[in-house]
């Protein structure tokens, strides 16, 4: 029991520290696929630390925006902690908690974008809303389903498909980064942020990406691997693997137009989720 709590906590802490490193790694992978040298492996940490050292500028939208940005950071860390505990504690409450945090985090992002008194941010907010809507309900449904029923059989691994799809969408990578879309709406939801607030925003985005890379593994591992240490090892390894795959996919694609691809995503997520439910409800034999 104590070992598990200790391990889960360590995993969460490691996640916060690793997320920016994985981000640097992603930039490195991207660079390699661009035939560039790319930044050193600690670059994202350097960036964050540099931003933290800058003066604090309260954005248009006032302290409220600043407060929401910080709330978002806390929520993403809370989500990471709860997901880490998922690896060891499979009570339905844990799953519900994860679902709630996922949802709360998205809500915070939306609030953040509309409180900034800036057109681009508001457009970004609406785009974020449509992205979230196309994936989040399914992800939450899947988390709750797995929590309620447990994953009983190898064939349940079919559930990985909708989980990976929805988590990818939730990482706001290309083609789903339309809420920022630097060339279109000038960084959209982040346009008003700078310095320490931008650093906080960056950290929460990266932590969220870490959670989304970890989720597929963390949702399914406990049902197949008994040894807690092995779970931790595999969990870490698979998180990294997922992150790397996501990174490569993001390089291969362009940015979508809000209306076009999201419809497709919704349909795909819906179909895969239904498939999982059907497979799960078919009795043994």
């Amino acid at each position: 029991m104590y070992l598990e709590i200790l391990l889960a906590t360590a995993l969460a802490v490691a996640g916060v520290a690793l997320a920016p490193i994985y981000d640097s790694l992603e930039r490195k992978i991207k660079a390699r696929l661009h035939s560039r040298v790319g930044p050193p492996i600690l670059q994202t940490w350097y960036d964050v630390l540099k931003l933290l050292a800058k003066e604090l500028v309260i954005p248009e939208g006032g302290y409220f925006t600043a407060a929401v940005v910080l709330t978002e950071l806390f929520l993403s860390i809370a989500l990471l902690v709860s997901v880490s505990f998922l690896l060891f504690f499979q009570s339905l409450t844990m799953y519900v908690l994860v679902a709630v945090f996922i949802s709360a985090l998205s809500a915070a992002t939306l609030v953040k974008s509309v409180t900034q008194n800036n057109l681009f941010s508001v457009i970004g907010g609406f785009r974020e809303y449509s992205v979230v809507l196309s994936a989040e309900p399914f992800l939450i449904l899947l988390v709750l389903l797995i929590g309620a029923r447990g994953v009983t059989d190898l064939k349940s691994l079919i559930g990985l498909a909708p989980v990976v799809l929805t988590t990818y969408v939730m990482t706001a990578r290309i083609p789903f980064d339309i809420a920022e879309a630097e060339p279109e709406i000038a960084s959209g939801i982040m346009i008003e942020l700078s310095g320490p607030l931008l650093a906080a925003n960056e950290l929460s985005l990266l932590t969220r990406r870490y959670v989304m890379a970890a989720l597929p593994a963390y949702l399914f591992l406990p049902w197949f691997v008994a040894n807690p240490l092995l779970r931790v090892g595999l969990g870490l390894a698979l998180t990294l693997l997922t992150w790397v795959i996501f990174a490569i996919v993001a390089v291969l694609l362009g940015r979508t137009r809000a209306a076009v691809m999201l419809k497709g995503t919704t349909v795909a997520a819906l179909a895969l989720t239904l498939l999982f439910i059907i497979v799960e409800s078919v009795p043994y034999g």
Binding site: K30, S35, I174, D177, E184, V251, G254, R255
Partner: peptide
């Protein structure tokens, strides 16, 4: 144009 469409790989390689 590739960059504007979010396809930075196209951007970088064209410039390469």
């Amino acid at each position: 144009a590739a960059h504007i469409l979010g396809y930075d790989a196209g951007f970088m390689h064209t410039w390469r």
